[in-house]
Amino acid sequence: MGLDIRWPIGLMFTLIGGLLTLFGLVTRSKAELYEGSLGININLIWGVILLVFGLWMLIMAVRGSRKGGGS
């Protein structure tokens, strides 16, 4: 039905993942922020994972639309 759900999922996670990655990069030196998360910069790591997932969904969506129709 009209909408390929992979577009919104891909866009949303690319956006959120990008945001977390950027924030993680900017706060790399702020150790006190990551005390709770065992000293791991989890924003950076998880941001990249979300970004990759989002982009993968977008690629699948593009491939789907090239084949025509497939939703």
Binding site: S37, I42, N43
Partner: peptide
């Protein structure tokens, strides 16, 4: 609350 820094907390 224990583990998530701001950012992951929002997620």
């Amino acid at each position: 609350k224990k583990y998530c820094p701001t950012g992951l907390l929002g997620l």
